[in-house]
Nucleic acid binder design. Structure first.
Lengths: 203, 203, 203, 203
DNA sequence: ACTCACGGGACAGCCCGTTCTT
DNA sequence: AAGAACGGGCTGTCCCGTGAGT
């Protein structure tokens, strides 16, 4: 079932998709409307027809980028019943390459950008982070209920660990232009799920 | 023994210190020379007398910020002979608060900022990261030689893990405006040193 | 029939007209874009949209000023067939007051300003002077051909005399803030045409 | 008899002489202290030791330039008793070349420069003009008293004519980079003295 | 008597975000 | 949807005048 789009709506989505990439690479302040004009081939009026301000466009671009990358990171997870396997697949998905959105993780990038003086974006980042964290925590709790994971785990703390480790190693990989740190992080998190979280009996 | 400074040098250092804070909070593109003028109380001529360009100032500001925060994070480490204890003290130093440089970790912030189109800054970030990583890896290797740590460890991989986890949780703490993720990361890394790296015999 | 102008063209002409006055009063170096901003009520972006540089604006402003003042000095001349009468009317037009362009003669002022280091303006001044000189010389030659003036006159030399005398007395009038020198010059030139140039027979 | 100068006074006069040339060529606004530093080989402090401000230096420079060029224009005049001959020698002196002060006539240049916003300079220009005018008028009146000139002449008006014609043709010569207009003016003024001012009897 | 570092202030040209007119 | 128009901010430069040092 293909969604039918008006011509205007198609243009709007094209702008969002291209802007998402640019904002993710150069940051909010580092990417001008001019840059987006060049990428889309539209004139200024053609862009401002669809968005009231750069900030609004940036917010939509973040949502788009986050949805896109979340789809990759969550790829195939729904069909996995076992929480441990599901988590490990989630980690493995981070190595799918190349990243669908150039410039690293939109969550990270936008968080840095929006930390000062852009409350609209900041809130979206917080919501995205919260949703991600909840998804991981839910998996952990489901695992505890089902006996896959040993009981007594702090699911929110584990989610923090997972996300922190992944995002941190994404930064390292970006600085070094080398995905080794990320691969190591995925390997270690995977091993951690098996060795520390899973109930000894089942292992 | 106080270092004697010329008036100009004192002004220059004052500019660097204030600019470091501003750049760290708002990013390179998000912080204008005007902002630095306002912070220092100097006029433009008074700033550009000391620096040829904004980029040069930013580079020096990063060096200053990194040196400052490195001093905090490395506080008291020299007098600790045991590598395991030294690493754990290093982790604990991340919780010293408030951070001497507002706005989070300069390495992280500058990495995001300089990733595109500022090769000068980028190189400094890479060097800083490399130095940090080497320091941790050296501690690990020293520990392996002395028997404190079990042999066969990949010191560079461990350094990646440590730095990735710390930086990642700093991002989370910043997004949530809550230092809990960072505290959890420090706790987990500390526990990890004791449980995974240290030789079973000694434990 | 009014000429229809786009909004931008109207703004552009307004800038030129106001800048012409300011440049003529204060000189190229003595009049900043800020001054023109204040006079026009426009911001910098609104001015630089229409002109690539201050120099380009100054060149157009000179052309405008010269065209304006030339219109005054040439007022009514086309309908005068007799060269002697036409010349005398030309002189008399210099006393029309107040000058449509404040600050004296644009030719003089711009010549002083552009003499060093502004070849673009300098050339326009030279062209303007050349055109003026030619117009006067043509009148003299026409007069010689028609018998109004005695033959054997050096028309270029006469033009030099006329222009030199007029411009020189404009300077004196400006220094003294008193139009008496200019009035005397006009009177003397007028008498000179009648007594020295005109053929004795006709007088 | 050589005037004995302290070292400081010699430096001061050297500054004035060099500044006079520069100001005359580039104008007050177009000539910076930096330029004078380069010309004199002095540092800024070495210049400001002798003058409180650029304006004061400019005023002295004008006086120097005017005195210098007046000496040339008045060269040999004192020993000429006959006013007509003296005036004609005065005119001829304008063709002495090269001008001792580059950049044209300081009176003209400074008048243009100082017309707006530099009352100190403006007054000196007015005084210089007044003195010049008086000198010419005095010669005319002396000639009328002695019978060399026909009576009834308006000596001030004649002075205006003379000065206006000379200064105007200096401008033309400068614009065209050709001293022909000035030579023609001198020739015409000389002829004028003989034909119009001198008593017919004597001629 | 002079040097040189220093800082305040203005300026030119550029670019960006946004609106208004087609 | 295009694009002209405009307000505003920003960077880097220059210049003037001061003051500490030599």
């Amino acid at each position: 079932m293909t969604t039918e789009l008006t011509k205007g709506e198609a243009t709007r989505q094209r702008i969002v998709a291209l802007a998402a990439e640019l904002f993710n690479q150069r940051g909010y302040a580092g990417c001008s409307i001019q840059d987006i004009m060049a990428a889309t081939g539209l004139e200024k009026g053609g862009i401002y027809r669809h968005f009231d301000s750069k900030e609004e466009l940036a917010a939509e671009a973040f949502d788009y980028a986050w949805a896109t990358i979340s789809a990759v990171r969550g790829c195939g997870l729904d069909s996995i019943a076992d929480p441990a396997t599901r988590l490990k697949q989630h980690f493995a998905n981070f190595l799918l390459s190349p990243s669908p959105i150039l410039g690293g993780c939109p969550l990270l990038n936008t968080a840095m950008d929006a930390d000062d003086g852009n409350p609209v974006l900041r809130e979206r980042v917080q919501n995205a982070l919260c949703a991600w964290k909840t998804a991981i925590a839910n998996a952990v709790e489901q695992g505890m209920r089902s006996g896959t994971f040993r009981s007594g785990l702090d699911s929110r703390a584990i989610a923090n660990q997972v996300i922190g480790t992944l995002e941190g190693s994404i930064v390292l990989s970006r600085i070094e232009r080398n995905d080794q740190p990320l691969r190591q992080a995925v390997a270690r998190l995977t091993h951690w799920v098996d060795s520390d979280l899973t109930t000894p009996a089942r292992q």
